[in-house]
Design a protein around this nucleic acid. Sequence first.
DNA 1: CGGCCCGTAAACATCA
DNA 2: ATGATGTTTACGGGCC
Length: 577
Amino acid sequence: MMTPQVITPQQMQQILQQQVLSPQQLQVLLQQQQALMLQQQQLQEFYKKQQEQLQLQLLQQQHAGKQPKEQQQVATQQLAFQQQLLQMQQLQQQHLLSLQRQGLLTIQPGQPALPLQPLAQGMIPTELQQLWKEVTSAHTAEETTGNNHSSLDLTTTCVSSSAPSKTSLIMNPHASTNGQLSVHTPKRESLSHEEHPHSHPLYGHGVCKWPGCEAVCEDFQSFLKHLNSEHALDDRSTAQCRVQMQVVQQLELQLAKDKERLQAMMTHLHVKSTEPKAAPQPLNLVSSVTLSKSASEASPQSLPHTPTTPTAPLTPVTQGPSVITTTSMHTVGPIRRRYSDKYNVPISSADIAQNQEFYKNAEVRPPFTYASLIRQAILESPEKQLTLNEIYNWFTRMFAYFRRNAATWKNAVRHNLSLHKCFVRVENVKGAVWTVDEVEFQKRRPQKISGNPSLIKNMQSSHAYCTPLNAALQASMAENSIPLYTTASMGNPTLGNLASAIREELNGAMEHTNSNESDSSPGRSPMQAVHPVHVKEEPLDPEEAEGPLSLVTTANHSPDFDHDRDYEDEPVNEDME
DNA sequence: CGGCCCGTAAACATCA
DNA sequence: ATGATGTTTACGGGCC
């Protein structure tokens, strides 16, 4: 539990998000509040009676002129009461002010301004009933059967147990008016109190967490003493409890609103998800929305495949894009991978996360040919060579799209590797790796582009580096352009590289027609391409240093997914288009 | 319409 | 024997 005085809006948000307070908890609090109000009334009466008695006594004593001790005692008592009352009211004012500042006390039209009522009058039970109705009507429908064992329950405990006999006496008659009240008997609460002696929600870090208290208590025992003495059943405690209840209520209302908002967002994004390829940013949202059952029906039509394989181990949904989607991949040692984790290197960085995450999470077919992708995969590797399996892994790692239909695209990859001369198979001790013959690749490029004169025109006339190969590519590049350029310029191998690779291709193509380029974009000359220094210095230790951006790369390690196998296996079995 | 590129499917061979 | 890896052929769609 927190102290209303110091609670910040951020904390409120946190609380809201955490949904700390269940309706049950609220109920408990409300019930307790109700009981406390009754007690408060009793106290008020008691106080009045005592005052009357005091007056009588004083009169009598004055008449008698004796017994100074008793007189003193009574006077002290009275003073104490008055002080208490004053303190209580001050506290209440404090609470209310803070709450108002925080916008927590937005009293609803039909609802009486409870908190502003003079404390002495206490809270009318009907008001509480009303309150309770409002709160419950808003929430009981959903998420029920929670455990109400947490803080609030214990709060109840502490308060009522502090004056058991009195409480029960006072409560019971009223309890009959409301069945819910009878649920909480002092017995049960005291039991729960004893069950978790050292996990009192009002006690933490050696400090009493009673709202506005923060008294230091050495140990739990002293805390209990403190609790019973300082926070016994009195008006102040009652008032504080009521304020707390208001806080809770407001939080509940806020929660309801935020839930509504969330629902609206989800609905909205769901609609978006049915639209085309989408911008990079919706990416994660798209996938997350996909999870929601409500959204599931509409999505299939829009995308080539149903978004986000449900079975896939990494669901982009639940977590934030870059970091979370990924798991530690190192362990997965594919059968005979040569440079086991090297391919990890070129992968994601926080910067490109946007782009990378897009294809990583959205099952959108990348607008690149298999040949381009394969080349990129190989070039991103430290050694500029990959085994077939590593290429597979790269595909699945970088593109959600390739996490299904493994048989199909893997076949395509093999097909491309064999078909294109630019891919050279190099025998190795441990097997064979694939490399890129950049000369061949550059040869090939112009060919293709030559078939698209308009593109060439574009490139020549506007020296547009990333003139797309086609509309899709263009779109993709548009999406990627900003982050890609920044990252690529930093020499960080990533998906950014992927785009840069495309640019390279174009550059390479342009070389045949335009040799003006002075910039050092990668892979322009065959020699550079074969041993490209620009992309990144090849680290001696593939595990650790992987380039200029150590930070980024460190992040890369974990981020990436690990289960190549999962991707390989599942799709074949489960998919059906 | 034909040529080219690309993706997909599949048959087949090789190898561990 | 099996699966991964390669090679090759065939076919269809898209584009120019």
